[in-house]
């Protein structure tokens, strides 16, 4: 691990003071400490933000507000989240392990880095870690890699399950910096790799995530998260789907859908949403709505199975949700 200076922030203001290029905010540490050990990340300054007043889970007329320092396990266990936003609780419970969920914060979860093995291995080229060095995954072992939103520079998937659920529900991420506060829809918070895969989101140097707001909706309470992975537990998604439906009787009024394990960022599927709207909630509807879900996908040598897996994941998630109703 490279040397860095360490400071404990007692207030948001103190955390933001002098924060900029080279500063890393430390919450649960499950990404940052791991990647500092690997020397994939080597910040000059580490600011411990665990004592900041950025906790709390609140539900009001606008929706659900989750403080950035809430831990994954606490949000997953929250009664309001479980009842009114089940897709969030399920996405969290299907992530990581009990220990990691106790540590990892909501803000940190959204900012976690990809699990691409080449990104984590400093002995191999990686454009995300070392811009211009090349992408080892393009011609390497790329079974886990993305098929949507990829570029010639990067095919790494985004690893967060929570982010997939939040993108489906149209959540906003709240940010603060010395320049003031702002809120950004999570879907556009993440950027596509293009020619600059080292840039993953619109967060500015020294800017801090303070929380997440999930708007109240007619579909959030009728939602589910399905995760397909190589082992039953404690594994990242090969494929996942967050599905929320507003139904009237047997008819789907509106659908909100995002998938994980497929894209370079959490991937919203508005074409599938539109294809479901106004249709009866039947197996035929699902099969027909997901037919073009993987349009525009570019597969690699080892992940040609992913378009079919994406369609099947969606059908299974929709079917499971309908059976719960």
């Amino acid at each position: 691990m490279r040397p860095y200076t360490f400071a404990r922030a007692r207030s948001v203001r103190q955390a933001l003071a002098n924060a900029g290029e080279g500063t890393a905010f430390l919450a649960g540490g499950t990404t940052l400490v791991d990647l500092m050990k690997l020397e994939v990340m080597s910040p000059e300054h580490v600011v411990d933000i665990n004592r900041l007043p950025l906790g709390g889970i609140r539900h009001d007329r606008d929706g659900l507000h989750i403080g950035a320092l809430e831990r994954m396990s606490d949000v997953a266990a929250d009664d309001t989240v479980r009842r009114h936003y089940p897709v969030i609780a399920q996405a969290l419970e299907l992530s990581a392990s009990g220990q990691l969920r106790n540590m990892a914060s909501i803000g940190g979860n959204l900012l976690q880095r990809t699990r691409c093995g080449y990104f984590r291995d400093v002995s191999t080229p990686c454009n995300k870690r070392e811009p211009g060095s090349g992408c080892s995954a393009l011609t390497g072992f790329n079974r886990m890699h993305a098929i949507l939103g990829t570029s010639d520079a990067c095919v790494a998937t985004h690893a967060s399950d929570l982010a997939v659920a939040l993108v489906a529900l149209g959540a906003e991420v709240r940010l603060t910096s010395g320049r003031g506060d702002r809120a950004v829809p999570l879907e556009t918070f993440y950027t596509l790799p293009g020619g600059t895969p080292e840039v993953e989101n619109v967060l500015r140097p020294g800017e801090l995530v303070t929380g997440v707001t999930v708007p109240r909706s007619a579909w959030a309470a009728h939602s589910t998260y399905l995760k397909i992975r190589d082992r039953q537990s404690y594994e990242f998604a090969l494929s996942s789907a967050a599905v929320a439906l507003e139904t009237r009787g047997r008819t789907i009024k509106q659908a909100r859908i995002a998938v994980g394990g497929m894209g370079t960022r959490p991937w919203r599927l508005t074409s599938v949403e539109r294809a479901l709207a106004g249709k009866p909630a039947t197996a035929d509807t699902y099969e027909s709505a997901v037919r073009r879900a993987a349009d525009g996908a570019s597969t690699l040598e080892h992940n040609e199975f992913k378009p079919a897996l994406l369609r099947r994941t969606l059908v299974r998630a929709l079917t499971a949700l309908q059976e719960q109703a």
């Binding site: 360490f6 404990r8 430390l26 649960g28 540490g29 499950t30 400490v33 791991d34 050990k37 411990d48 665990n50 392990s97 009990g98 220990q99 990691l100 106790n102 540590m103």
Partner: peptide, 28 residues
């Protein structure tokens, strides 16, 4: 030593965590 095996599990304030991904400096 990478947060993947759980052998280093301890309790901090009664909660199970991985001591290999916890900086000692944050346990004040």
């Amino acid at each position: 030593d990478r947060g993947q095996c759980g052998a280093c599990t301890v309790h901090v304030d009664g909660r199970r965590v991985l001591s290999c991904l916890t900086l000692a400096a944050t346990t004040d």
